[in-house]
Every structure is written in C-alpha cells, then in structure tokens.
Design a protein around this nucleic acid. Sequence first.
DNA 1: ACTCAACCGACAGGTTGTCGGTTGATATGA
DNA 2: TCATATCAACCGACAACCTGTCGGTTGAGT
Lengths: 211, 211
Amino acid sequence: MDKKQRVVKEAAERRNEILDVAEELFVSKGYDKASTNDILERVGIARGTLYYHFSSKEDILNAIIDRINSSLISRASTIAADTSIPVIDRIVMTIAALNVDTDIGHEIIDQVHKPQNALMHQKMLHNLIEGIVPIIVRIVEEGNEQGIFHIKYPAETVEMLILYSGTVFDDDYDESEERSANRIKAFLHNTELLLGAKEGSVQQAMSKLFK
Amino acid sequence: MDKKQRVVKEAAERRNEILDVAEELFVSKGYDKASTNDILERVGIARGTLYYHFSSKEDILNAIIDRINSSLISRASTIAADTSIPVIDRIVMTIAALNVDTDIGHEIIDQVHKPQNALMHQKMLHNLIEGIVPIIVRIVEEGNEQGIFHIKYPAETVEMLILYSGTVFDDDYDESEERSANRIKAFLHNTELLLGAKEGSVQQAMSKLFK
DNA sequence: ACTCAACCGACAGGTTGTCGGTTGATATGA
DNA sequence: TCATATCAACCGACAACCTGTCGGTTGAGT
C-alpha cells in the first residue's frame, strides 16, 4: 500500500523541494545529525533520485547557503542603492537587513549558530562577508567624501565590523541580559570610533530605526 | 605474524599517545575525514581500548583542544604578568604568543583554518577567547590608569580585537601578498583607534618586536 | 591466587555514494 | 491518430565505510 509511486517533476522543482526539506532538517537537527535518509524520506523520493540532483550531501549544504545568501544580499543591495537615505542610516539599515528576522532568516540564523552546525555557520559567514563587504564599503566611501566619516582603510575596517557583528550576536552561549546590552552599546561606540564618525551619530541612527 | 600483542600501559600514557596521533590526523586529514579506525591503527590498539580511554570521537577532539589551549594560555599568562614590560609591548607580545609558531602551534593553526575543520576551529577559537580576553583586559586597564589608553568598554573591545585577529589571520583562502600586508596595517591602525592609544604607538611596539 | 585496570575484537546499527535498470512525458513519423 | 523511440527523471539494492557497545581476556601488583 505504501509502495512508492513514481512522480516525475521538472529538475528545478525537485531540486527546490529537496533544498526546502534539507534546510529544515539541517537547521533543526544540525548538518551532521540530519542524514540523507531523513531528507529523502521526507521528500518522498529514492536514494538514487537525491544523488541524481545533487552530487553529495555537502553539495546540498552549499546550495542552501547560496540560496539564503543571495536572498539576503539582494535585500541589502536594494537598501544600499537608495541614496536618498542619509549615509549612516543607510548603513545601519543595510546591516539590519542581514540580521533582523526575515521571511526565513531569523529561525535559521538562531539555529545555525549552534556548535553542531560549525561548518554551515562558517560557510555562511564567509560567503556572506564576501558579498556584503563591497556593498557597505561603497556607502562608507560616500560618507568619507561627505566628510561624515574619516576612515583610512575602508575595506578592512568594514570587514572587521561585519565579522564581529556576525559572530558576536550568536547567542549560542548564554549570557545575561545586561552583558548582552553592554555588548551592543560597546559595538556602536566602537563603530563610531572606527569610522571616525561623530560621537553618538550611529547610536542615533540606530535608535531612530528601532524605536 | 602481525597478530596483536598486548601491551599494557598506564592510562595517562595511553591517553597521550592517542591524543598525539589523533591531533596529527585531525590536522592533516580534517576531523571528519580522520576515522577512529585510522587512529587506533596508528596507535596500535584495538577499538575497545580507544573507547576505554575516551567516550567518543568528539571527546578526543575536546581533549586535544584543551591541551593546546592550556599551553597557549599559560604561555600568554606568563608574559602578561611581567609588569616590567611596557603596557603596549606587553599586549603585542601576549597576542603574538597565541599566533606565532610555537612548539606545535604553527602547523596546527594553519590546518585548523581549513573549511573541513570548521568544528575544531570554532571550538578552539571560542575556548581560546574565553581564556585570553580576561588576561588582556587586565593589561588594557593598566594602560587606562597610566593614561596611555582611553577606552570605554575594555572587555568588549578586547573581545573584538582578539576575535578579529584570530579570524583574519586564517589564510585559508588565498589572497595577494599586498592585500595581506594591508590587512595587518589596517589592523594595527584600528587597534590604536579602539584603544585610544597614540597614533603609531602600537605599530612601533610591533616593529620593535619583529625587526 | 585474587583483583581489577587495561585491553581485545566481533558486532549492531548507522552512514554516504554508486550503479544498472525502469518509467513516463514528449517528440517523431506513418 | 496511433505506434514507437528517446531520454530526463526516478528507483532501490548494495558496497564500503563509519561510530559506539559489550562480554570476555590478560597480566601487573597485592
């Protein structure tokens, strides 16, 4: 009765089905613990079909990451391109677009930061940084020209800020509310220092957005 | 002929033998690819023996990381405690003790930064940061009192610096000589900004040490 | 001659990736 | 309009690993 009945679909559609399920599983159980068997059972396909569409389990992981990142980056680009927004606000908004809960983003990012998902985490971060740094650098340079910022090494500094923001907001290890709030205050303060921005200017943009 | 002949050793000695071999293998092949079979063959023991001394493969990984980190941290502590060294020099030296090639350190750290070793990498970094940040913070606060630094959030800032230094010196992904040199210059410059130190003071200490 | 820490290896139950074979949607031609 | 050929998509058995368990063995010290 529960015999397999063959259902044929277009490759692109099947691929996405697989990615949807795999994403769900990788996130909830962790990349290592989620087996390819779990995936193909949930999708309702046979082993051979999975490996017809993907060459390996890691290949699936990479495809998922690409999917998430290109979505995040396109969102960020849109904001970054809107020159009607003041520079500082635009930077805050662009970065916020990466971290604040999006359609899928939030849950994933929470889970991804578990130690069990180290590989996934690292790949995402690396991949994301590569895409996002140039976008922010362009805004920062705009700020330099406007005399709002005074920054000597834009690319490296932005890299540092993004990297830190991406790693530090992993609340995988529990910490007190107070400590966490302190971290954010410190981060904003240090951002101002590094960008050579007026004291309080970043904080202001931040509180303006999340009031 | 190649029958197993039983050799009995003290537990501590066996444990270290296993850790030595496992470290070698994890580093050269990556944690995932190195199998427990590889380890026990190389050590010359049976499966049961391995699991007599360690409860799981990950348990072995954790033991290795503890071993490396406590060695690194004790080295760093020694330097940090020597108040005869000027504050800035002492900070540079302390951090250098973590990154510069040590007995084992260098090779390992090179390899650990490969994507295949994401879990190991993350565990080391996390563990290391936890140990090293308080040590450096104490020196930084000393600098604050001496009026050399002017820093508002010592703990958070040091965390940021260490985290960045630990990540940025992963030369896993290839980059030009020039880009890499630039990164270091930028890092030193930003360190001065964050610490509120006199411009050039950190660069000076750095070049004094590695001339 | 007893005890028990250290050791052994077979085994259960999992994993990923491969491969020869099958099926059905679509194109072709009579 | 109906037969048939083609090939992308699919299937599931299987090989070759993997980790962790467990009942039994051994030998060094008392």
